[in-house]
Design a protein around this nucleic acid. Structure first.
Length: 257
DNA sequence: ATGGCAATGTTTCATTGA
């Protein structure tokens, strides 16, 4: 079982790239963020032809999340948004795929520390934590996958001194992520030895990617029961290369049967 | 090879992302 998450930064632009990546990678579940498509425009048929059943919660221009499940896998209890938390922005979708509860999350960016969007980010994070806590209680096999817009540690940032106190790496954001993990989730990436300076996002500007000036802000968090079955987790840096890449690379975790 | 922002709509600039 192969689980993946990828901030695709416009599924309209990136559909050909996604289809090629699906064929090459053969994941069983893919969580997508920043699809930027209203539901009536979602390329459900193209993905079905590629062998994936799609569930999605989208909107125009911004945000938008989806879960793709390999055709034939049982998909149950699809849920959109965070119950009890009013939000016009489409940032969460959940589904149980082959018995594993999967939640695709697109945490707000936060813009800059202290801004209105930063306050929204922290409030959203806490609401999401309560939601994930309830999900964990109901589903021992849980994976929360997505773009968290938070780098957890110094080693997840190309230049920690430069980023200290900045949005994506501020103390309050890292604390919010730690608090979500404290309910009983582990960062599957850190279950394994990893090459130093492994990141999941690079700015389009200033040659950030070829210089590897990135951040690791996309994560696959797992419950203890799921983590016990996790055999690998890696970031697919190759998917950031070539013509018209997303600014994010996918994270891929493997689960033993 | 991986390359000096990109996607979108409000469209020929403004907004947002991270």
């Amino acid at each position: 079982m192969k689980l993946a998450t990828w901030n695709i930064n416009s599924l309209n632009v990136r559909l050909p790239r996604l289809l090629g990546w699906l064929a090459a990678t053969a994941p069983d579940v893919v969580c997508l963020q920043e699809t930027k498509l209203e539901d009536h425009r979602f390329p459900r048929d193209a993905l079905a032809e590629a062998g994936y059943e799609a569930h999605f919660a989208g909107q125009k221009t911004y945000n938008g999340v989806a879960i793709l499940a390999r055709s034939g896998l049982a998909v149950d209890d699809v849920a959109r948004g965070i119950p009890g938390y009013e939000d016009t922005q489409q940032r969460v979708i959940a589904a149980t795929v082959a018995g594993i509860r999967c939640i695709s999350v697109y945490v707000p960016n936060g813009q800059s520390v202290g801004s209105e969007k930063y306050v929204y980010k922290l409030g959203w994070f806490h609401a999401a934590t309560q939601y994930v806590k309830a999900a964990l209680a109901a589903h021992p096999l849980l994976a929360v996958m997505g773009d968290y817009n938070v780098a957890p540690e110094d080693r997840d940032v190309h230049d920690p001194a430069l980023w200290a106190g900045q949005v994506l790496f501020s103390g309050a954001e890292r604390t919010a992520l730690r608090e979500m993990m404290a309910i009983g989730l582990v960062d599957s990436f850190r279950l394994f030895d990893q090459p130093p300076a492994t990141f999941s996002w690079w700015d389009y500007r200033m040659l950030a990617f070829p210089k590897n000036r990135g951040l690791r802000i996309d994560h696959i968090l797992m419950s203890a029961a799921l983590a016990a079955r996790c055999t690998s987790c890696r970031i697919d840096r190759n998917a950031r290369k070539g013509e018209k890449p997303s600014d994010h690379a996918p994270v891929i975790a493997e689960i033993s049967d």
